[in-house]
Amino acid sequence: MIPPELDLFAAIFGVFVTIFIYSFLWKENPLSRAVEHLFIGLAAVFTLAFMYDAALTQAFWGTERIAEGNFIWVIPILISLMYFFFFSKKYFFLYRYPVSIVAGIMAGMMITGMIQSNFIAQIESTVTLPLVGTGVWEGWPLPGLDSIIIIIGVITALSFFFFTWEHKGALGISTRIGRYFLMATFGAAYGGTVMARMSLFIGRLRFLYETSYADWFWAWYLVPIAVLCVIIVAVWQRSRPTPPESEIPPKKQKSKD
């Protein structure tokens, strides 16, 4: 089990990295850059870990796997090792075999999956909209009007993506209406984007304001200290005469091995 004292460490760490990363908004500085690089390092190990686990639980342990004597799982492992020819100049062509196997299966899946769910089902749902009687959505004063709007919207917006003929005449009118529908769609997407990003920011603020440990420690106690760290580093950096980048001329990248 994890000792509960570690939660205190987590809260302290969380406050500092949050403030350090937010200091980027003012100006990029060594602290924000350091946290970014630490993040990349941890992300790399996380990638390694879930891959290692996935390979183990997928092929070795478990029901009907190698550990239970089902050696068919050795084949995908052997094929997957061919990925490492990525690093070889001479045998690079071998790297293409696993890539094309994956791409081939994905392509096959894509065709069947897309045709049914994103194509036939969508068309079906559009042409079967009720035009009279109770509408698709209750409470709207004109039942059926919504359906008509959707049908017009789908057809005109589709015509906008129709590039075989020039957008003139009847097609021109249709594409213009379609463009308005697409703009309404993008407006809804914009609203969703703002909503999601603000939620994330609110989540961070709630962490800063509400995290506590054993009644005596609140995370926001550390906010001024973290801000002070940022200011000190900023002042220290300003007082340094030359930026380190200019000391060494950037070397030319050698051709790949």
């Binding site: 897309m114 919504d146 769609t185 993008f186």
Partner: peptide, 20 residues
């Protein structure tokens, strides 16, 4: 539910054709 569904359905159909 209405204008957004219409616009997005057109996009979904177009993307499906492209992906296939």
């Amino acid at each position: 539910n209405v204008p957004n569904t219409a616009g997005n359905r057109a996009i979904t159909l177009s993307v499906a054709i492209g992906a296939i």
